[in-house]
Design a protein around this nucleic acid. Structure first.
Length: 596
RNA sequence: GGGGGCGUAGAACAGUCUGGAGUGUUCGCCGGCCUGUCAAGCCGGAGGUCGCGGGUUCAAAUCCCGUCGUCCCCGCCA
């Protein structure tokens, strides 16, 4: 037999009279007794089948999601029964034969897109969830994105190269996922956080243009845009300047966006420096789909009597504000904003609302002079009804607080618009809470000017850059250090002595000594790109089998314990406190997972 | 590590504030009727550890404590 001759959406009025077979799933069955309608769904879409239960009794047995093959004649729908909503709505298949290939149990949830099913249940039955139109479309879109990327880079002469996923742990950056070695008990591989050093070695190896669609692993806490494992487009080139890297990545992103969204993207991506991004938007990954930019108010309050502002200014801080536009602001709503500001690191938050007569309603208005109030209103272009939010602190804190509130109050729902952005000129280093200095990108990033870095590391800029889309950090890259002497200087500034550097990265530093070409590159998250292009709010909706926030796959119940013999082979024994904690969980009968 | 939301039938919810019999809605499921539907319709029916444990009370889905799960956020994410 033949399961099918055509996909559902291959059929239209030009096929009227043809005898065809379609195969797929019963999306709906509408049984009128004397006649039954069956919506058959396959990967292409839906086509309606009409069957006479008297001549084909099996249609009485059909239930949702039965897997079927149906043969019959394509015919025009009778007058008045055309379904405009359906691509195949002008025709239907008059069934001659209905074969149940595979029945289905009653579904754990409905597969249409009309109700939001709890995500855990969807993940428990992900194979069913993937049949839902939205998820099926996300899978297809993602495939088109990667196909487009491959086509584009191949056309530019890039070589696709795979790098190992069992590598040596380099305990910088994120926490490594570890894999124990059986052949060398006590030693561990790490899964790559990125192919960073391997792609640089490919440059040294003479591969002048490299890319890879690479799975990466970072053992950090989950967010709506973060998973333990994710996929990056990783690319690198030799004899490349920053401008050339950005142009190439921009082309790739544009073709991918065009592939999914259509239209044509002619405008170059906006470029801002890191400092400008922080000052204007309070974020190194600004969402520029809306304004509400941060405004400096230092001069307005230069002589203020208001202690919170004057205190910040005299201690080298700053006073800045945003105009959150016209909105309601009850006392309770204001309290929520203040709490949120504190969560973002502020000691407090000054809120005001411009009243109809132009005066300011605020708990602190009485502390401000007339000039200060008028200056504030004019600087923030405030009009009656507008809500103004002002923070005073170190500029980093003020930026974080106002940047966070700006997103809370102004960020558009969904991803209908696409606002790409380059953020360049990242600082070379960051100061940690304990006062130590760390790299802000990675330790192989080239400083903008080596002289600046030596003179004042904490203000020195690097040749690192990020790509941002709708406030989502898609990825980052940099021009790398190709001069071993510069690499040594960077380690020195980072407080990594030669011996430590040799122990951790010796294998890589050796390679730098053999005629390393100047090189640089970039990597961006395919999952995040697909998420935004598909208008999704969660990375999990573009990953076929993602994990929950606690790192669990509700379907397979990974991670799970392994046989003791497996541990023995690896020379591993669980620590006593771990065994004790697990025993306690078992005793109290608590179910840690899988309780669906 | 911390803050917050949620957890009631197979699914999505209401009920919880203000304690009084597992009360209800929609979808699904089972049975019946039905020849033009497309979320078909009509009639009937089944289905519940109110996440779990403890406490308060004559009485707990409801109040209190703990805990598990899940989602969002802060920290973390070179």
């Amino acid at each position: 037999m033949t399961y099918r001759t055509d996909h559902a959406t291959d059929l239209d009025s030009t096929r009227i009279g043809d005898t065809v077979s379609v195969a797929g799933w019963v999306s709906r069955r509408r049984d009128h007794g004397g006649v039954a309608f069956i919506d058959v769904r396959d990967a292409s879409g839906i086509v309606q089948v009409v069957a006479d239960p008297a001549s084909i009794p099996v249609v009485e047995d059909l239930r949702m999601e039965y897997c079927v093959s149906i043969t019959g004649a394509v015919r025009e729908r009778p007058e008045g029964t055309v379904n405009e909503e359906l691509a195949t709505g002008e025709i239907e298949i008059h069934a001659d034969e209905v074969v149940v290939l595979s029945p289905s149990k009653t579904l754990p949830f409905m597969l249409d897109d009309r109700t939001e099913i709890e995500e855990r249940t969807r993940l428990r039955y992900r194979y069913l969830d993937l049949r839902r139109p939205r998820m099926a479309e996300n899978l297809r879109a993602r495939s088109r994105v990667t196909a487009t990327i491959r086509r584009t880079l191949d056309g530019m002469g890039f070589l696709e190269v795979e790098t190992p996923t069992l590598i040596r742990s380099t305990p910088e950056g994120a926490r490594d996922m570890l894999v124990p070695s059986r052949l060398r008990q006590g030693d561990f591989y790490a899964l790559p956080q990125s192919p960073q050093l391997f792609k640089q070695l490919l440059m040294i190896g003479g591969v002048e243009r490299y890319f890879q669609i690479a799975r990466c692993y970072r053992d950090e806490d989950f967010r709506s845009d973060r998973q333990l494992e994710f996929t990056q487009l990783d690319l690198e080139g030799s004899f490349w300047t920053q401008a050339e890297v950005l142009d190439t990545v921009e082309t790739v992103l544009k073709t991918a966006a065009t592939e999914i969204r259509g239209g044509e993207m002619t405008e170059p991506f906006l470029r801002v420096t890191w400092q400008e991004a922080m000052d204007r938007f309070g974020s190194d990954k600004p969402d520029i789909r809306f304004g509400m930019e941060i405004v400096v108010l230092d001069d307005v309050f230069a002589d203020t009597e208001f202690g919170v502002f004057s205190g910040a200014l005299t201690s080298g801080g700053t006073v800045r504000g945003i105009n959150a536009g016209p909105r309601e602001l009850s006392r309770a709503q204001a309290d929520v904003l203040v709490e949120r500001a504190k969560e973002l690191g502020a000691k407090g938050l000054v809120w005001m609302q411009v009243t109809d007569d132009g005066s300011l309603r605020s708990s602190v208005a009485k502390f401000l002079s007339y000039d200060e109030k008028t200056g504030l209103v004019s600087r923030l272009e405030a009009e009656p009804g507008h809500v103004l939010l002002i923070a005073a602190d170190r500029w980093q804190t003020v930026s974080a607080v106002l940047g966070g509130l700006r997103l809370d109050l102004g960020r558009p729902q969904g991803h209908d618009d696409l606002a790409f952005l380059w953020v360049t000129d990242f600082p070379m280093f960051e100061v940690e809470d304990d006062g130590s200095r760390t790299f802000s990108h990675h330790p192989f990033t080239s400083p903008a000017l080596i002289e600046d870095m030596v003179a004042d590391p904490d203000t020195a800029l690097s040749q690192a850059y990020d790509a941002v889309l709708n406030g989502v950090e898609l990825g980052s890259g940099s021009i790398r250090i190709h001069d071993p002497a510069v690499q040594r200087q960077v380690f020195e500034v980072l407080g990594i002595d030669a011996e430590t550097a040799e122990r951790r990265f010796g294998w890589f530093l050796d390679a730098l000594d053999y005629g390393t070409p100047p090189h640089g590159g970039f990597a961006f998250g395919i999952d995040r790109l697909a998420m935004v292009l598909q208008g999704e709010e969660s990375i999990r909706d573009v990953i076929p089998f993602p994990k929950t926030q606690t790192g669990v796959d509700p379907m397979t119940e990974a991670p799970a314990e392994v046989d003791d013999t497996q541990l023995t082979e690896l020379g591993i024994r669980l620590r006593p406190e771990v065994i004790a904690a697990r025993a306690e969980d078992t005793e109290t009968g608590e179910v840690s997972r899988g309780d669906v």
